[in-house]
Nucleic acid binder design. Structure first.
Lengths: 363, 363
DNA sequence: CACCTCCTGGCAATCGGTTGCCACAACTCT
DNA sequence: AGAGTTGTGGCAACCGATTGCCAGGAGGTG
């Protein structure tokens, strides 16, 4: 009988019919950007019709015509690394406030998989991208920026292209960690980190070396070791090597918290109890490290806030987030503050000459 | 000049034009399900045209007309809980093989947020849903099943509705853990877990109690304590209470690995070193627990495989996954095997009468 | 040789909003 | 009172792929 069977969700046509207007008019009445385009009484009639029908515009149909998907692609190297979930949560929350959703591509640090997943994102017409993948030499960034969609980088430096980025103050973080260790009397300090083609690795290693001058430490006694990846097993291997080759090391700044975990294991195996004989500092303050034994001293980066800020920045560039558009932030690079969280994995250095591993009895 | 400006991605019309056929024909030629509908030479012409143009069908347009989005909604309580990323990875990989993508809704255990996020999923016309959210009393499941889309449950029992589910053999897992502890001489064993409105909590607690008969343990000495949530802080509080109220407890089976972490802290604070004076068993074998000190003895559930299997099952129900459709699996509930991973957080019980915490010298 | 069937591919409607353009009405101004 | 301006809402094309229906040709059969 009826032309349309009225099955399923109500469409804009149903709303228009109920309000007694043309679908096009209904569409405009429901669009907050078209404020004033439609007279107040008509708009109200349409809105109430939509309300009574429980009308929700179909994002798919909208995307097709309007070329605006309200989807943001988020490229993350490895969701199993506990640093990332809080970042993603921050992104999701900021996006949700503006009616956007995040489509997360978990690349698992695999270039092929990254290519596939990113292609899938692009096929879905994301309005913009947030990239937290860390490799400097990948093809992802060029591929994404070749389209006109805005891209925001998270927790990584830009490569050649100058893209807006949200990160944390790595130099200050590293300096605070090393200053803390130096203050505890440590003189021979190692930085165990990952491959230098990761931007965070570069930045932090450089900051570490520069501590020599600033903190009055001997440049030769600040050791940097690059491992194949920022993982616990690699850190364990590297730390064991280090401790046998340079037994004078009394403190390690790990490239991230996962590497600190590997250092714990190495310390135990090498008979260098932490923190009595070996102080260990992590990086990121990812969830649960305060429950480790010993609780990890680490550099906190505001993970959730970084994600939130990155999404806000992207929404601004997309024009018309509900936030104040007049902040006039020309700065393309936002650096969030870091802070050193001192827990139990760092302690005063044993006096020089004392055999490593000897217990410091009687205070 | 040209009617279409040939800007942006090539469309099916471009392909059709290049191949000298009608767009509809091109569409059919590219559809593997329409095998044979189009003659081989024509199909090949279209395919090569598509290839040379780098044509990728627009999922948005396809969805609008075909009512098939190739998107699966995944509802997860908390991505920051390390159990879930591997499950999600398994889901993503299985879906990717079939050309589907996962849209993950992270509810953060917040009912309001869960409602919003699930509504966003539904608006996007997901073809199906995988729900790993654990609460039994939420409105999510009824809301999702009220539409016709298939829903698969992961790692949770069904509520009233009988839905297909993929889980792990919790009863066997709990039994193995308790048997292990009993074999080490433990007699007073506690199960510290979360609120009983979580299905896994119910199942495991019940399995724990039923060990009394099967393993010849005294029913009164199998203690179950429900905390407010399956988190480390709650576990710590509960464990401290327990250890003061029932000092005879020599082993704890935690509701999950996070709770085991809380138990570590409680054990230390209560002067009941683990494993010498208190054995602790976790549940899930989530990433990195082998790096804890002591390395956690825990019940492994095949997280990745569970996710993978759930996605496969869903694809089968959607009809036409590339997998064998003739397996004829009528079983709606798939139970993956669990295994007990014995590490260093469990040890022989101190002999009765010996003061807790005394070291067992001389083996 | 006429008729029937099957195979192939074209046509056009459709999914559900969005938006450029236009018509009509009301109002203002001279 | 007539002309110009502004405000409001209708009309229809459009985004890009899918698919039901149909026509035309080839091949087979009585």
């Amino acid at each position: 009988m009826a032309a349309r069977p009225t099955t399923g969700r109500p469409t804009i046509r149903d709303v228009a019919e109920l309000a007694g207007v043309h679908p096009g008019t209904a569409s405009r009445a429901l669009d907050p950007r078209r404020e004033g385009r439609i007279s107040a009484p008509t708009a109200e009639r349409v809105r109430s019709a939509a309300r009574s029908l429980g009308y929700v515009p179909d994002p798919i149909a909208r995307t097709l015509r309007a070329r605006r998907s309200a989807v943001i692609g988020v490229v993350v190297p490895d969701l199993a690394n506990p640093v990332f979930p809080p970042i993603v949560s921050g992104i999701e929350d900021a996006l949700a406030e503006a009616g956007y959703v995040a489509l997360v591509a978990n690349t698992g640090n695999d270039p092929g998989r990254e290519r596939d997943r990113v292609a899938a994102l692009q096929a879905r017409r994301c309005d913009g991208y947030i990239v937290a993948s860390a490799t400097l030499d990948g093809t992802t960034i060029p591929r994404l920026t070749s389209a006109a969609d805005p891209v925001i980088l998270v927790n990584r430096e830009t490569g050649d292209l100058d893209l807006p980025a949200v990160g944390s103050d790595d130099r200050a973080g590293v300096r605070a960690a090393v200053a803390h260790l130096a203050g505890l009397g440590h003189r021979v300090i190692a930085h165990l980190t990952g491959p230098p083609n990761l931007s965070v690795v570069q930045t932090r290693a450089e900051a570490f070396r520069s501590c020599a001058g600033q903190l009055g430490l001997d440049r030769d006694q600040l050791i940097v070791r690059h491992g194949p990846a920022l993982t616990a097993p690699d850190a364990k291997d590297a730390a064991l090597d280090l401790l046998t080759q340079v037994p004078a090391v009394t403190a390690i700044l790990a490239g991230n918290d996962l590497m600190a975990l590997g250092c714990y294991a190495a310390a135990q195996q090498a008979g260098r109890p932490c923190p009595a004989s070996l102080s260990i500092v992590g990086y990121n303050d990812m969830p649960f490290v305060e429950w480790w034994r010993p609780a990890l001293t680490t550099v906190r980066i505001p993970q959730y806030d970084i994600g939130y800020e990155a999404a806000r920045l992207l929404l601004e560039r997309l024009g018309g987030g509900p936030g104040s558009p007049d902040t006039g932030r020309p700065a393309k690079h936002v650096l969030m503050p870091t802070s050193l969280i001192i827990r139990s994995s760092t302690a005063a250095a044993a006096e020089p000459g004392r055999p490593p591993g000897a217990s410091v009895s009687g205070g």
